[in-house]
Amino acid sequence: MIMGASQTGDDSPLVEVRDLTVTFPARSRHPAFTALNGVTFDIARGETLGLVGQSGSGKTTTGRAVLQLQKISRGSVKLHGRELTAMRADELRRMRRHMQFVLQNPYSSLHPRMTIAQTLTEPLIVHQAVTPARYRERVAELLELVSMDPAIMDRYPHEFSGGQRQRIVIARALAVNPDFVVCDEPVSALDVRTQAQIVSLLHSLQEKLKLSYLFIAHDLAIVHEVCRKVAVMYRGEIVEKGSVSQVYDNPTHPYTQMLFDSAPVLDPSLQRQRLRMPPPEPATLAAGHPDSACAFGEIHAVSSTPAWHEVAPGHGVSCRYRPA
């Protein structure tokens, strides 16, 4: 059922991203801009990688570039061991049934003039996943999968709340049985209680369907609840990566520490104290220069090593954007 599984064996990661770089060329008034620089990570089968960073850090671009919805300048993305970046358009379209996308805003990611059934049928038509006679049956199955009443399938998106719409968006992503889903801030537009419901739905779907997620968020707390591994992005680069316990117990990059300092705590007196401390200022993070010694005392231009240091097995940190 899974294409290419035989070539890679079962213990290799489902998604392998290497040196992913996206540069937007210079336009009349804007200089060229490197949105992603050398992003590298793996996602194993059934695993979730959390990708955290502030807006403009390149986390959404990463998600889109992995899914080949964004033209990349350099690097490689493999799914099931197959290189996506070199694929022909029709081949890539077929490959899309293995990788799906859940967007942030459930209000705009559903076609307002299509019924829920029409929306959920689209991927089935595109990938000829089931015979037309079975469309409605499959739509009903999908709605049950995301804990919605199949009776609503002939209604329109505007009749539903944000949380319900996000369930429908998730159902659409799952229509053709993908292995890998990119979730781009899937809960940040929702109320906290709805967030918790969607998070638990994503969990149960992962268990049931053995899904792998790339979970993009701007806030460490939600990643803590969803993921076992986390990568922190800053200015288009991954600056720290490791298991959630490693990174959360021992945040090593100053930007990661800044994120922790910014997150509000649910203790009024402690939070009052924190708000009285000087604010975290990302402006203090300088890029550093490869010709001079980095924070770990290495001159990367001389040793020609990447600006990356393992602080523990599986827990790495970049020496970029930190005071030397």
Partner: peptide
């Protein structure tokens, strides 16, 4: 309200806030 919320709805809202100091059930 943070120490001893009395209304069920308040409790539900507080419980739903994702927190850094509580380990989740992440796979």
């Amino acid at each position: 309200i943070f120490r001893a919320p009395t209304h069920d709805y308040t409790r539900a809202l507080l419980a739903a806030v994702p927190r850094l100091d509580r380990h989740g059930v992440a796979p």
